[in-house]
Amino acid sequence: MTGRLILRLTAAVLGVVLVGAGLADAHTKASGGKDPREKLQLMAPADPGGGWDTVAREIQSSVDAHGLSHATEVLNVPGAGGTIGLSRLANQSGKGNKLMMSGAVMTGAIQTTDSATTLDDVTPIARLADDYEVVVVPKNSPFRTVEDLMSAWRADPRSVAVGGGSAGGTDHLFAGMLLRAAGVDTSELNYIAYAGGGEVVTGLLDGGLDVGVSSYAEFAGQIEAGKLRALGVSSQSPLEGVDIPTFVEQGVDASLANWRGVVAPPGLSDAQRAELEKIVTTVHGSEQWQDAVERNGWKDTFQTGEEFRSFLESETARIKRISEELGLS
């Protein structure tokens, strides 16, 4: 009898302790206010493992290593090319302890999804790094040069099956830019969307696709093995360590940077914005971050303040125009 009583008492005490600890935990999670040095929330508007998630987690590890904030957490809010996360951020006006990953993919998605929230509704903080689009063909393709591809497009644009990422993404937009550079109506593009660069590779290898567009990292293995041939890269100037000419060098007026950066909620004071810029600048200077740039094969294009804002403005306008031409919005 006493044995059971003791058992019950222990259970009750344990229960109370658990509830207390749970409440305390919920309380710490709830507080934290607006100070990024107390608690910094990094929102990745994508699934775990995707590009934005990688950036967020790289930032997190460098913030932690340098003790820039007491607590950092990565929050995944995937959906609709990042626009779900964007609209959530836009609703958290004045909260100076939140950063969201953003980039060229989001500017495209804002167009395709007809999102009510745009990048004008949040505070730009910094551009971190870029990667670029590569256009490839199978090794025995009749397209030896960019000019071959351009003339095929001029002859019969629908006969060239182009594969890349989802409709409205950077791959699609860049294919549209190329078509326009060839002087062909952009809406004639025969574009086939895939879930990622890996799937595009199989489409190219089995002969279904004539041309593939994706980021360099996705094709690098196959290019090295000689199964795919690169026609050009979308950067303005040649890339270090990548033996592919740019389109601009080859006389085709088309370039696109798949940039990644961070933005913060709207309604921040100048001091709040400066604080976040300071944290991101320290992250950028850290060894972890430079290491990450190297590992992921990105190009370091760090920008903050006015410089980043004006880049964002011109890039948004350019992407808007091309996606309208593609009939996406």
Partner: peptide, 27 residues
């Protein structure tokens, strides 16, 4: 092929790239 067929495989692919390796014929 560097081609992930599941979400899990996609993240492993990401991890390969993080370590500077390129899944593909030469891996």
């Amino acid at each position: 092929l560097g081609l992930p067929t599941s979400a899990t495989a996609a993240i492993m692919l990401g991890a390969f790239q993080q370590y500077g390796m390129r899944p593909g014929p030469l891996l």
